[in-house]
Structures are given as C-alpha cells and as structure tokens.
Amino acid sequence: MAGTKTILVTGATGGIGRAVCARLAASGCSLLLASRDAEKLRLLGQELSATRSGTFSWLPVDMTSDASSRRSGASCAYEAASWTVLS
C-alpha cells in the first residue's frame, strides 16, 4: 500500500483491530484510529508514531451508539475526501 493512503480503522485498540493497525502502519499508511477508549487510542497513536512513518490520528467513538457515531462522523467529515479505505 502506498504511504498516501488514509484508512479509518474501527476497534483499533484491541485484538484484530490493533493487529490491522500495526500491519497497515508498517506498510506506510496513515491511520484514523477509532475506538471507545480515548486513553488507549492516544497510547496506540503514540506507539505507532514512535515506530512508523505515517500520520496517526484518533477518534473516540462508541460505534454501538447512534448519537456517538453521528457526533464522531460530523467531527471528521472534512477528512473524508482523503480517506481510501474504511474498515
């Protein structure tokens, strides 16, 4: 994957989502990390930034909550034009 790709990864802080983040970051992608736990997102973003070359942003969101999803979607809508993949 080219380093210019920006990918939204939901469930980024645990299990498969975290593994996906590590793999995508290793291939040079920039990531928008989404998960419920803001502190875990911050730590993951820092960890990836320390060892990888992409750009890593994070967005606390509870995807099981319509209200939380709408708020988060509205707060990052301006970035959507540069997104390549949603997971």
Results as ranks from 00 to 15, higher is better:
Arg71Thr: 09
Leu24Ala: 04
Ala77His: 08
Leu59Trp: 14
Ser82Trp: 08
Leu44Asp: 04
Thr51Arg: 14
Thr6Trp: 09
Ala74Ile: 12
Ser75Ile: 12
Arg23Ile: 08
Ala22Lys: 01
Met63Asp: 10
Val85Leu: 01
Thr4Ile: 08
Ala19Met: 10
Gly3Tyr: 10
Ala67His: 13
Gly3Lys: 08
Trp83Ile: 01
Ile7Pro: 00
Gly17Ala: 05
Ser69Arg: 04
Pro60Gly: 15
Thr6Pro: 02
Ala81Ser: 12
Gly14Tyr: 11
Thr10Ile: 04
Gly54Thr: 09
Ser87Ile: 03
Leu24Gly: 01
Arg18Pro: 00
Trp83Tyr: 09
Pro60Lys: 14
Gly14Met: 10
Leu44Thr: 03
Ser27Gly: 13
Ser72Leu: 07
Gly17Cys: 05
Asp37Tyr: 02
Trp58Lys: 07
Ser65Ala: 14
Ser57Thr: 13
Ile7Thr: 01
Val61Arg: 00
Ser27Pro: 06
Ser53Met: 11
Leu86Ser: 10
Lys5Val: 02
Cys21Leu: 09
Tyr78Gly: 14
Ala80Leu: 04
Ser35Trp: 00
Leu48Arg: 08
Asp66Leu: 10
Gln46Glu: 15
Arg42His: 07
Leu43Tyr: 07
Arg71Gln: 11
Val61Tyr: 02
Lys5Tyr: 06
Ser82Gln: 14
Ala80Lys: 03
Val61Met: 05
Leu48Trp: 12
Gly17Asn: 03
Ser72Phe: 05
Ala77Glu: 12
Leu31Asp: 01
Ala80Ser: 04
Ser82Leu: 14
Gly73Lys: 05
Gln46Pro: 10
Phe56Cys: 02
Leu43Arg: 07
Asp66Met: 12
Pro60Gln: 15
Ala12Pro: 01
Cys21Gln: 05
Leu43Pro: 02
Leu8Trp: 06
Thr84Ser: 01
Gly28Pro: 09
Ser75Glu: 15
Ser65Leu: 13
Ser35Tyr: 00
Asp37Gln: 03
Ala80Arg: 02
Ser65Gly: 12
Leu8His: 06
Ser75Asn: 14
Trp83His: 03
Gly28Asp: 11
Ser68Gly: 09
Ser87Val: 03
Gly73Leu: 07
Ser27Leu: 10
Gly45Glu: 07
Leu86Val: 11
